[in-house]
Design a protein around this nucleic acid. Structure first.
Lengths: 168, 168
DNA sequence: CGTGAAACATTAGCGGC
DNA sequence: GCCGCTAATGTTTCACG
């Protein structure tokens, strides 16, 4: 958890792997002018430090039938906590925690952040089309007891969307 | 560009590679109960069809000094097109196109979508802290001639954030 | 789709700066 | 501490059945 120092070579490695996560260690080593073993040691260090969190394949939504991307702002009801129900209360089922737990099980929701401002949460939702979106809203999101209201916007055009973070 | 049919095995491969993009072909083959060569042929097919767009390493923002995530809604000025300037007009420099071009050069902006609703664009912006954000706003975004106004919200808590799309 | 073989990549141990 | 060599092991990739 120490805030590990990154030198120029480490940053170069991160930039390379952010652009192509499947490059062989040899290829990376060559591009940073190192031999394979110290390069591999650095990559391992970055992985172990949690700086490299994961390697993934990115898919093209349109090509797997996900034609519609929505951002949904969600407002939750205020904490209505000390309301005893029939059985023993576990003590931690606030609207916020069980909304968060539900989000995990909704595969259409690929991202969810608690936000400042009027709305409590911002969700990124991938669906096939408006009908699928509608089904998700009526059948799932709006039915969740913690949800007070929502406001949706739809993506018209992707200008940029990268997983590559800026390296300071 | 044909809307390529995906069978159960293809979907399984996509699910596996969305979760770990560095698995060896052998490992993937084993998990889908195939031998390495047909498995590799399938993966190549998925790459060539553009269904697998890219392989990347995901970094942990907090561990590389990016402590603040903002979503910024941007409204552009209306097209003020037929305004001849001193020299010949190239014909395509609308506010929208040159805003889009600028976004490409701002590494803090990792995503930008044109959206329905009151605001024209939604930007996802990774910065170190409020001071960095403020510098980006005053020095870059608000200085762009096409930008009319902006509204920002900040992430308080990441509930979920995955690149893995739902497979229908 | 699977087999096999050549080319290539990974990774641990060790010596050197 | 960090680098680079070597050598054993494992993986990719393709022609062919």
């Amino acid at each position: 958890m120490a805030a590990m120092e990154l030198d120029k070579t480490d940053r170069k490695i991160l930039a390379i792997l952010q652009a192509d996560g499947r490059l062989s260690n040899q290829e990376v080593a060559e591009r940073v002018s190192l031999s394979p073993s110290p390069c591999l040691r650095r990559i391992k260090r970055l992985e172990d430090a949690g700086i490299i969190r994961q390697y993934v394949a990115l898919l093209e939504p349109a090509k797997i039938g996900l034609g519609l991307l929505a951002y949904v702002n969600v407002r939750l009801e205020k904490q209505r906590d000390a309301q005893a129900s029939g059985s023993a209360r576990s003590g931690s089922a606030t609207p916020r925690t069980d909304f968060a737990a539900s989000v995990e099980n909704w595969p259409e929701v690929v991202a969810c952040y608690a936000m400042t401002g009027e709305m409590d949460y911002l969700l990124r939702v991938h669906v096939e089309d408006m009908e699928h979106f509608s089904r998700f809203m009526m059948g799932t999101l709006l039915r969740h007891p913690a949800v007070l209201d929502v406001k949706s916007s739809f993506a018209l055009q992707r200008i940029k969307d990268t997983t590559a973070l800026p390296l300071l």
